[in-house]
Write a protein that binds this DNA or RNA. Structure first.
Length: 189
DNA sequence: GTCCGGATCACT
DNA sequence: GTGATCCGGACA
């Protein structure tokens, strides 16, 4: 895919990633998820993990555009970020929700859980697609374990809703969360 | 060295 | 509102 697309600041890339497809290949099977919700984190953003300095945990967020940053949160969930902007600048797009084309066999639906919501949330989508710290720092590559496919049709601005990010205290007022309006797989309205 | 709280989620 | 459960980073 176009290298320049991801070599921009995360707040520009995040809305553009809506409608893209994230592909995860496990055991020769490709699982496709339409990206329906994203958040942006940048170098001058206090909520960004790389805001203070580079550490072993967060070094991947300083990587090349098109690589990924995966971290453990609350001791039990992983979150997937697409690294953007140039190398050594911390900038990434958190993938918050996907609409999967099929439910992997290892996913067990909750009692009242709808199938179209098994990847509705950053922790849930990593669990559904077996994304963990083993993938931290890898490059997206078609045909490998994880990659992106461009949207077939560009979404109209009227189909996208922009609002504030979820679950943070620092920089909570910055409106850097985007989702596809009326989509059932969005994590929260 | 210790301890707090987090880019979460499911259940009450 | 709370518990599960880890660990980076501030020092409360």
């Amino acid at each position: 895919m176009d290298k320049e697309f991801l070599a921009r600041s995360a707040d520009l890339v995040a809305p553009d990633l809506l409608g893209y497809t994230l592909v995860r290949k496990i055991g020769g099977v490709e699982y496709r998820g339409l990206i329906v919700e994203t958040e942006a984190y940048t170098a001058d953003d206090p909520a960004c993990h790389g805001y203070r300095r580079k550490t072993p945990r967060n070094q991947a967020i300083f990587g090349k555009p098109g690589s990924v940053y995966v971290y453990l949160i609350y001791g039990m969930y992983h979150c997937l970020n697409i690294v953007t902007d140039v190398e050594d600048v911390c900038s990434a797009v958190l993938i918050r929700a996907l609409a999967l084309d099929k439910i992997p066999a290892w996913v067990t639906l909750g009692k009242k859980e709808k199938p179209d919501r098994v990847a509705a949330g950053p922790g849930k989508l990593c669990r559904a697609l077996q994304i963990d710290r083993q993938l931290d720092g890898i490059m997206l590559k078609p045909g490998a374990g994880l990659w992106l496919e461009p949207a077939s049709d560009r979404l109209k601005p009227a189909e996208i809703y922009q609002t504030t990010r979820i679950g943070i205290t620092q920089g909570a007022e910055i409106p850097w969360r985007w989702y596809i309006k009326e989509h059932p797989a969005v994590s929260k309205k």
